[in-house]
């Protein structure tokens, strides 16, 4: 449930993440970050900066080498595999660059996926999915397979899916990376709508133009937070334009 309590939806404390890839690679080197409920934050950085690692940790797909990641009040590292899965299914909504829809499920069925794992009744989740697809403008594409939809339409299905369980947090990983600029703008506007309805949004991108849709931009380089900017939506933020 999207809440507006004062408790942060995500809190990252002194997080380090190392990988063993022939030698030890430090992807995150002591990161502290807080996301308030209902906030809209972009994490920006070049590839290899550690932003994807941060996303995986916050998305409860991975656990830190040291430090704590607390999502919706749960310390991710302390959860069982099943509890982490439930957290992903009900408290977090994922949006990916490559859409990641199930190829043999229709638009409606893709949207109901998190609800299915949360054991919703079939008719309830169909109603919910139809509503969400109508909200993103796909009310006439309910029973189409992903391959029958354009890239922009697929991403809108993915957004509807991310919103299905009404999670506190939406994680969007380069959501406009595989669509044209105009479609990208539509998608960013849908994310803004979601944020306006109270879902915290965490946007990961390497493009400043996209990052500036958020209220706050966290710049990550070489596994550490370089700086945090507030975005004034009336005038462009300071800093280099890409």
């Amino acid at each position: 449930m999207a809440t507006s309590s004062s408790q942060p939806v995500v809190s990252v404390e002194s997080v380090r993440k190392e990988y063993e890839l022939g030698g030890t690679v430090t992807a995150l080197d002591g990161v502290d970050l807080t996301f308030e409920a209902g906030s809209y934050t972009a994490v920006m950085g070049p590839s290899g900066s550690g932003k994807s690692t941060l996303l995986n940790l916050i998305g409860a797909l991975d656990t830190p080498t040291s430090g704590d990641v607390v999502v919706a009040g749960e310390n991710v590292a302390a959860l069982s595999e099943a509890a982490r899965a439930a957290l992903r299914g009900t408290r977090i909504g994922f949006i990916f660059q490559t859409f990641n829809l199930m190829p043999r499920l229709t638009a409606v069925e893709n949207v109901t996926l998190p609800l299915m794992f949360d054991e919703w009744d079939r008719s309830d989740r169909r109603d919910r999915a139809e509503q969400l697809l109508a909200d993103v403008g796909l009310g006439n594409r309910l029973d189409h397979l992903p391959q029958e939809l354009s890239g922009g339409q697929r991403q809108r299905v993915a957004i509807a899916r991310a919103l299905a369980a009404d999670p506190e947090l939406i994680l969007a990983d380069e959501p406009t990376g595989n669509v044209d600029t105009e479609t990208g703008n539509e998608i960013m506007s849908l994310l803004r709508d979601a944020n306006n309805r109270g879902n915290a949004v965490l946007l990961v991108t390497h493009e400043r133009r996209i990052a500036e849709h958020a209220d706050r931009v966290v710049n990550v380089t070489d596994g550490v937070i370089e700086r945090i900017e507030q975005v004034d939506h009336d005038t462009p933020v300071a800093g280099e334009q890409r």
């Binding site: 595999e81 099943a82 899965a85 992903r88 199930m102």
Partner: peptide, 11 residues
């Protein structure tokens, strides 16, 4: 995709 959407290992 299923795991990101809440599928447990046993599911």
């Amino acid at each position: 995709i299923m795991k990101a959407n809440g599928a447990r290992n046993r599911e």
